[in-house]
Nucleic acid binder design. Structure first.
Lengths: 201, 201, 201, 201
DNA sequence: TATGAATGAGGGTTCATTCAT
DNA sequence: CATGAATGAACCCTCATTCAT
């Protein structure tokens, strides 16, 4: 793991960070690979050593950033002393929604693909400088609620997609209501979903 | 409404239909305006008489097709004798899910923008050969459930986004479960949402 | 056939002439489409309205120039009063060899594809501002010698390929002998071939 | 001739064989040095230790393979008891034509450069793992027919170029006639050429 | 209104070549 | 000798857009 390997990772990260910055500010469509490499300070050809094309790096970034969002929320959750799983889940959800409300560019970037950071199906391994701490926020939860809930994966899926779908327009356009107004209804619905999967139905 | 106007509408429709066909099969990114006009049988310049660019026609199409989906479901619903509003809503949802399961290309096209066919915020007037009959599936529902439910718009919003978010990966990739397995849970959740908004909470 | 059509042909011809000039001086490999359009004074995209790529225009040019060579030789032949077909054929061959000896760049360009100007199989219609006078030098000959020679096409084919193959290195590198030395032997061989096909063998 | 030298030769041969395989299947133009080194299993930089560029290795290959063709024909000829030089020559020609008919990729590769395997002018020393057995098929013939034929080199030159030019389109496109039909006429012509150079003209 | 030839900037991509290891 | 990551010039080609007809 000499200087070369370090340098290699450095370039890859520079490309990822620059791409994220440009995609969020100018949009995927208005960002060219020329833009990315120029700002990242690497040669054009170097891009193609690491990524297939613009869409490849974009996919990897969506997964990466959504994962980071969950990881950060998990970390903050652990600093609190929450008594049960439901509380933990709601804490994380609230934390993520707040984070996205603060960072609208990130919200637009992740768009409705929140699920990609939680689960990992559909898009294969992102291959990004993985901090091998929490591979999978989802796994952590399933482990904890596995016994009290039947089909925890499905439950979490419904919750995540409900959130991913509804906060987008609420935060960005305050449509149909602002996020502040949305939250109580949203959390009530989420509680309802948890009940539904918890009761011995 | 002379021959000229007819011809005009004809060209516009040809462009819309061709664009839809190409977008769904080749994708927005791989379809050029040249492709569209060539297959539609009109001249390049003509495109710009009707649409600003590729993204303009795409937006109009998403709204258009999502609206058609709701209109068709509404029409089929009226052929049945459903007793209350909840039944009607669930019928429509089921009809739409079935339609999208049958037509995966349409599902991919509408993606998670199902809401655009139901509500009309975010994207301005689509300006498509509107049959001015049913302007808005949403309006119809609000009128019917307005008295029994407080904040019907919000309720419908949550339901629609939940559906739009969760069926996508289920139908296309059978992840995390197939649409057949998803449905019962989904409908139970929807019923829960309706309860939540109906009870005098 | 207005100004537009004229202009169109003009651009096409400009591209063909420029390409020929560049291919012969710099070589196909060292000539870029940018070079061609720049020197021809048309836009880059215009090239692609008329030709598929560099190789397409090259093929069309080879056929075109080889045809021109034959046409010119035919024209000069008609100015002389030659008594029979054999004399005519030998006149044309001599004329072409002289022309190629004078114009080594043209020789290198046509290379060993002399036959493409005489016959037209393998490469389809070149689509070049055809002077519709002599479509096909070969046809003219077959008409004249058809009765005295069986299988005139084959005979001409062997003769043309023999010439095309042997003069190249002789003219360019004087290997194995100079063209002056080669000629008598070559013509004797050609006469031999004509004899072979003429005798009631 | 230690292990190092062996290894060296091994890499060189791997590059040559891979290049030949790629040139014949994908064409010179569509084969990159990257392709070659990747498939040969050596590093990019290694290529430049042995060859100047793509065209360098191609030239060496054309000569190499054309030579191999003649060598193989010569070897097979020696297994037969042929009485005179004319018979030997015709045997070799027939053998080569058959070989090229069987192996159309090789024919396309050698194209009309058959002469390069027989004579060695124009392209300088190929520098290929030369088995120093038969340096030159041509030399062998000249030694044998030197006394009965004046200017044997020229005679062989004409014959080889006639063959090289005429079989190409005949084998690949059956134009103007199939190789089976071409052969009798071709051999008659060759015999004519031999006569022409043998008679005390 | 409708056309479609012409544009030309700039997109993505390749690839021969270098050089520190 | 051998490597292969990095380079960046230069490539081909697309395509949205214009405008004279």
């Amino acid at each position: 793991m000499g200087k070369a390997a370090d340098n290699k990772q450095q370039k890859r990260d520079a490309l990822l960070n620059t791409a994220f910055s440009l995609f969020t500010t100018k949009g995927l469509h208005n960002t060219s690979i020329s833009d990315i490499v120029e700002q990242a300070g690497v040669a054009k050809g170097t891009f193609y050593l690491y990524f297939k094309d613009k869409y490849d790096i974009n996919n990897k970034l969506v997964v990466h950033r959504a994962t980071m969002l969950f990881d950060a929320a998990m970390a903050r959750m652990k600093e609190h002393d929450l008594k049960d799983c439901r509380e933990k889940l709601l804490f994380i959800i609230d934390d993520i929604i707040d984070a996205l409300t603060e960072n609208k560019l990130l919200l637009m970037f992740i768009s409705k693909n929140l699920g990609l950071g939680f689960f990992r199906f559909t898009v294969e391994n992102a291959g990004i400088t993985e901090h091998p701490t929490i591979h999978n926020a989802y796994q952590v939860f399933v482990d904890e609620i596995g016994d009290t809930v039947q089909d925890p994966k499905l439950m979490l899926y419904l919750i995540i997609e409900l959130i991913g779908g509804s906060i987008y327009s609420s935060i960005l356009y305050e449509q149909p209501v602002s996020i502040t107004e949305l939250k109580p209804h949203l959390y009530k619905t989420i509680n309802g979903i948890i009940d539904q999967f918890s009761s011995g139905s």
